[in-house]
Design a protein around this nucleic acid. Sequence first.
DNA 1: ACAATGACGCAGC
DNA 2: GGCTGCGCCATTG
Length: 124
Amino acid sequence: MSLDSAEFHVAVYDLVRLIPVAKVTSYGHIAKLAGMPNHSRHVGQALKFLPPNPNPPIPWHRVIGASGTISSRGPGTDGAQRQRDALEAEGVEVTAGRTGELRIDLGRYGWFPSVDEVRALQGG
DNA sequence: ACAATGACGCAGC
DNA sequence: GGCTGCGCCATTG
């Protein structure tokens, strides 16, 4: 299956919407579910260009790195901090390391379903 | 066409 | 767990 960049964005949005409350998954896993395992970077690219008021909403904050850490996004930005607040508001524990990295326990909050499970959730 | 970039991932140390 | 190097690929300069 090959996806246009626009279709890829839409596929990413649909997958992100499936993430349960108080659960997190990784960019790479979303890419895998979208059928493009090597496009983990582009998942982040897609989330960077979220539509203004999506309906239903897109819980972008439930997508973190595969190592369980929230991506920095640059020193001058507050995106990572906003993501932390949104997660804690759902009851997800976020621990801050000494180097400033925001880590989440994937064993407790990780959500990594197989492609088949996701297809079932989507109605297939 | 070429070089640099980025909300990434994995193997090695 | 942290740091480094390499692979990945659409986008941007």
